[in-house]
Design a protein around this nucleic acid. Structure first.
Lengths: 138, 138
DNA sequence: TGCCATACGCACCAAAAGGAGAGTGTAAGA
DNA sequence: TCTTACACTCTCCTTTTGGTGCGTATGGCA
């Protein structure tokens, strides 16, 4: 068990990989990645990219299967990170709409490759899963 | 409250967006995206892309801050989805190594854009967060 | 003789994510 | 007058995520 403790301690040390960038930047980039590499964020990004400015319920309808709670949370975090602009029209009933910022549009473009990958290879992923299942059943 | 029930019911309907692709494909792509858009998956992908074949503990050390449990889980899911090959050398102490498949390398390339985005814009995200914090403190 | 190394699996627990449902405020339409 | 619309917020609850610590097999080294 001492062995494991040692291994774990080593794991929590700084990675010695990717020397060109500083550890501080590394850490920040990882933080940003972790926040942004989220299912709902990707879906909302897509919806806004495709449809331009949308209202709260419209985003929910287009994304599909998201609860109000998660929609609010996701949108707020995206606003906080500067990915969307939230515009409140002080009327009753309330009217709020969301638009991608330049930063958001850039991120959406960056994710484009992942969407394309998924569309291109989902059949292969399915096949790999099937093969894996059969292999472990045996 | 009936209003909310109606809105929620509408939200859970199928999205009418993106007509070019079939709903079945849409759903599969979303599933794949949801699995793959994961912090640890992205980090492990990066590590393997940069260093080629790696052993279990090496992956852990390079990724940094991941527990053995999550590392095992992430690696298994990636194997299941056909992103990595797991090779067991039946010796004692055990020796297992992991290599990206072509599929994995393609995905890594697709994520490259997101990494670049994060590296390019993390300062702007930080600034946006700071501004947001100050705005809501007021 | 006895300890170490590796890549896990398992059990237990805490924290976070996420869903369901109710409540809110008020102007305009039935 | 009663309901509806919208964009939430709040509470309660379940599920998932993730961490910690333990056990394991055994050839080789001290």
């Amino acid at each position: 068990m001492q062995a494991i403790r040692t291994a774990m301690a080593a794991m929590h040390q700084r990675s010695e990989a990717i020397p060109p960038v500083s550890p501080a930047v590394e850490s920040l980039v990882r933080q940003v990645i972790a926040q942004v590499a989220d299912k709902w964020t990707m879906l909302v990004l897509e919806a806004l990219e495709e449809h331009g400015t949308l209202r709260f319920t419209e985003v929910g309808r287009i994304v599909g299967g998201i609860s109000q709670k998660m929609l609010t949370k996701t949108l707020r975090e995206m606003e906080r990170d500067g990915l969307v602009v939230r515009t409140v029209h002080p009327v009753i009933p309330p009217h709020v709409d969301y638009t991608l910022t330049e930063l958001g549009r850039e991120l959406s473009a960056a994710f484009c490759g992942v969407w394309t990958w998924a569309e291109t290879y989902y059949a292969e992923v399915s096949a790999a899963r099937k093969a894996f299942r059969e292999r472990e059943e045996a």
